[in-house]
């Protein structure tokens, strides 16, 4: 690296260049400042999540009830186990990364290759898990009813267990609601996907099943959702309910306020994008290590720099995990 530097004739002066007050190379220092600015971006997201949460402090969805899936365990209530597993995978891939950096300091090419390979695998598993989590969230589980004011009403039975729309609806076979398509109208506009049931079908089913009650978004003193009495439930179904929601997107969310879904998509999405780009950068460096680039260069500092980025991704996840799933 030094061979390409041209002399300026001011080397002996304090500001003449050539000295490193922070005793790190330019690349590593800039990686640190990039990480600082990226940390501020993530803090902005998490702090605005906090803002929205404080704004709706008594009606925010309960994370344990939203993220309770585990692969191959259908219908089992497994709050947080999966996301805890994901956290371990990411922490472990951080460990293999730091082991790769350590092996790099000792110029052990074979070991660097092995540990970087494990890191990349860990990262890939994490991104895949994130995708699975998104799929469950978007698909939803029980479905809910939305009111005129955009409030979400969910259904529970006498014991407080959630009841899905499919167990409530009495399907009216005489009326078949046709989906409006582009080719049918004058203005070549089509409508969005039709929900599985209509609000009338849910209303009829709800009136018939006497044990059903409505659960609103409002939290009680103990931090649980408020359950209305049967008469109140019937009243709300008649007067306020206007549509049904299955799953979540950016405007409707069966778990509660749409803001929850927006922040979920945005923050975990942005983090997932970081993991993805981290995996790509890791692969590039991994190929370089195999080709022996750093062996010829006689130092493995590039592994260290990509390692810093990778640990940062882990660091952010620690905070996302806390504020999205635990608090």
């Amino acid at each position: 690296m030094e061979t390409a530097v041209t002399k300026t004739g001011t080397e002996d002066k304090t500001w003449g260049g050539g000295n490193q007050p922070l005793k790190v190379s330019y690349g590593k220092m800039m990686m640190w400042f990039f990480i600082l600015s990226d940390a501020l971006t993530f803090s902005g997201f998490l702090a605005s999540y906090g803002f929205s949460r404080f704004k709706f402090i008594d009606s925010w969805p309960i994370a344990d009830e939203v993220f309770n899936h585990f692969p191959f365990l259908h219908g089992v209530d497994a709050p947080m186990y999966y996301v805890a597993l994901m956290t371990f995978i990411l922490i472990f891939s951080s460990v293999t990364m730091v082991l790769a950096v350590d092996a790099g300091h000792h110029m052990k090419q074979k070991k660097v290759i092995f540990y970087m390979f494990l890191t990349i695998i860990g990262g890939a598993i994490f991104v895949g898990s994130q995708a699975w989590e998104w799929k469950n969230f978007i698909k939803g589980e029980y479905g809910a009813v939305e009111t005129k004011g955009g409030q979400i009403l969910q259904f529970v039975d006498g014991e407080g267990h959630r009841v899905g729309l499919k167990d409530i609806a009495i399907i009216n076979t005489h009326k078949d609601r046709a989906q409006h398509e582009r080719k049918n109208g004058i203005w070549f506009k089509k409508e969005g996907t039709l929900p599985t049931y209509t609000i009338e079908e849910i209303r009829a089913g709800f009136a018939k099943r006497k044990d059903l009650l409505i659960r609103t978004q409002t939290l009680t003193e103990k931090g649980q959702k408020t359950i209305l009495s049967r008469t109140e439930s019937l009243k709300r179904m008649q007067a306020d309910a206007i549509g049904i929601v299955e799953g979540a997107n950016l405007t409707h969310n069966e778990y509660g306020t749409p803001l929850f879904a927006n922040f979920f998509f945005f923050i975990t999405g942005f983090h997932g994008f970081h993991v993805f780009s981290g995996v790509i950068i890791n692969i590039i460096i991994f190929i370089n290590v195999i080709l022996g680039t750093y062996e010829r260069r006689k130092n493995y500092e590039m592994v260290e720099k990509v390692g810093l980025y990778w640990h940062f991704v882990d660091l952010v996840w620690v905070f996302v995990f806390t504020f999205f799933y635990l608090v």
Binding site: L308, H311, F319, T322
Partner: peptide
């Protein structure tokens, strides 16, 4: 939860990212 998270963040930064070995200025 928040204190434990900051505790974890401290160890990730100091040990894994090797902040403990950098100069005071950085």
């Amino acid at each position: 939860f928040i204190i434990l998270t900051i505790y974890k963040a401290y160890y990730i930064t100091w040990a894994f990212m090797h902040m403990e070995g950098e100069t005071k200025g950085l």
